[in-house]
Amino acid sequence: MNIFRLAGDMTHLASVLVLLLKIHTIKSCAGISLKTQELFAIVFLTRYLDLFTNFISIYNTIMKLIFLGSSFSIVWYIRRHRVVRRSYDKDQDTFRHFFLMWPCLILAIFINEKFTLKEVMWTFSIYLEAIAILPQLVMLQRTRNIDNLTGQYIFLLGAYRAFYILNWIYRYFTEEHYVHWITWVAGVIQTLLYGDFFYYYFQSWKNNVKLELPA
């Protein structure tokens, strides 16, 4: 494992921890899109179908379990927790997210590396992850006022994607036969979606003012 991959995994892990911290200690999910969280839970569920059949390393297995467990517990918190669910801005989170799944599924059926159930589900998870952040970005745009933890959460998620691209570039030059168009194209699209957010995040950081997106 190279340093970019590790940095990517660690920023991904940190993003989840920041979100859990916000939900668990402040008992608030204000500004967080349940739609995006549900999509992430589906992404991990369909990607890690090989959790118990394809062993790679202890590290991989533990990380997979953390991402599965955290994504489902976040959804549970927002939907079911007595206090947390009251802070959920339902009216701002109106994205028809399940409609995003159909094009991803159809695309995965036609464009994949191998036509098996596991492989199609894995490819579906790659496509779905690329656009799963959209409901959250739409919600940010609407609420505009973004608290620190929500801002950091999205920043860390974007950083995770950026590090993964550096990881792919590194692996491309250091490993033989390392060409994965599906993952790369989906990954680059996913990272570009954060571009706008990054711009305003750095502006607010540079000028030391509260993060606010333009209407």
Partner: peptide, 10 residues
């Protein structure tokens, strides 16, 4: 095989 290599990523 080649198709399996990315499965070592998360």
């Amino acid at each position: 095989d080649d198709a399996e290599t990315l499965k070592d990523e998360l």
